[in-house]
Design a protein around this nucleic acid. Structure first.
Lengths: 203, 203
DNA sequence: TTATGTTTCATTGTTAACAATGTACAATGA
DNA sequence: TCATTGTACATTGTTAACAATGAAACATAA
């Protein structure tokens, strides 16, 4: 197989991704009401799939839904909640790094390297929403490796919600480097180093 | 108002509750495939609302869904994941107890007392699924008080998933008493006592 | 026998029409 | 003037029909 097979992404996931980007980027401000009909027209589908996506994002904490009223963009976390989230995230990801160590294959290393390459590219191009996406992907890859869908399910709502607060924080090259360090730790099967790098990154 | 106004519960929540009960009680075993059409007939609605519920329970981690294939009951957590979940739950609920202390009103105390009364009743009647529900309600009430929907969103998938493992564990009067102790700590605004009781209860 | 292709059917995904609900605003009466 | 009731509209909730997909059974050829 010479050509790289493109990944097939279901329609509903693409829509969810687009909306997540809009929210994380700050394009959709807190309390913005989302109209099902309008979204359906925007993405060229009917209201059915849109409702599915809204339900999903609500469960992730990005949206708030009221019965018979609709969904709107959630507010950023309070400072206390943000602090708690950081602690929870660290606990989960430290577990993940520790657990995935014996499972990591060369293919995984490669995949992580590629994500970091994307991250670097997004940073260079100053596309910060994409950078955030790569950031999340990197961590998700590790979490998924360690605990599968099941752990991702717990982890994701914490992370995605935290990201709402980072909208306008300037990102630096240090952020990309931090991930390189984490990967280095994993590559060398050095739990201590990886965990240390992780701690630095999650804040 | 002399008569107590009954709480209105949306159809979809009732269906979700019923399915959650079926799963937690063990009536629906792991890997059981859920058929949308059958569920629709069972609850007397169309497939639309059923799909919503399945999506919700999937996000909660009770179900696993595959594209174009359907949803089935998830497996219990691995021992390592269970251990991690306990730690996460403790972190969240300790935060919740600490945070809610200055917010607790007499009405809240009353509500918690009623939940414990339900719990005791369920225990006496040996209705262990209802007991589990009351158990979750008690903790959820506190978590919600401290962090609102937003914290519940993070907390719930962890707890509900843990519960899948407790299916056949015999519950004792001690379980009910543990909750009474937590409430006592809250009533006395004694964070230390409440936290200690909480630690005992979450395991 | 095994691997590959085809057919059939059950099931999920999607759509568009319809029902129910909430919101905003005007009409009514004190 | 203000509170209350009624009405119209926009929006969400639900349904049933249709389209697309995947799984299993069967047939075919190496």
């Amino acid at each position: 197989m010479a050509t790289k097979t493109p990944k097939i992404i279901p329609v509903r996931e693409q829509i969810a991704d687009a909306l997540r980007s809009d929210i994380i980027s700050g394009e959709l401000e807190a309390n913005t009401k989302l109209n099902e009909q309008q979204l359906a027209e925007r993405f060229g589908v009917s209201r059915g799939p849109i409702r599915d996506v809204l339900l999903k994002l609500t469960k992730e904490g990005l949206l708030v839904s009221k019965n018979n009223v609709g969904s709107s963009v959630n507010s950023p976390l309070s400072p206390e909640m943000q602090k708690l989230s950081i602690e929870l995230r660290r606990k989960i990801e430290e577990f993940a790094v520790k657990t995935c160590m014996p499972l990591v294959t060369d293919k995984d290393i490669e995949a992580l390297e590629e994500i970091i390459a994307d991250m670097q590219e997004s940073f260079d191009k100053e596309e910060y929403t994409d950078l955030t996406k790569s950031d999340i992907s990197f961590h998700q890859y590790i979490v998924n490796l360690a605990g599968g869908e099941c752990l991702v399910n717990i982890w994701y709502p914490i992370v995605i919600r935290m990201r709402m607060n980072y909208q306008r924080i300037k990102t630096s090259q240090a952020l990309v480097d931090e991930h390189k360090h984490i990967l280095e730790g994993i590559r060398n099967k050095d739990v201590k180093a990886a965990t240390a790098a992780l701690k630095k990154n999650i804040k």
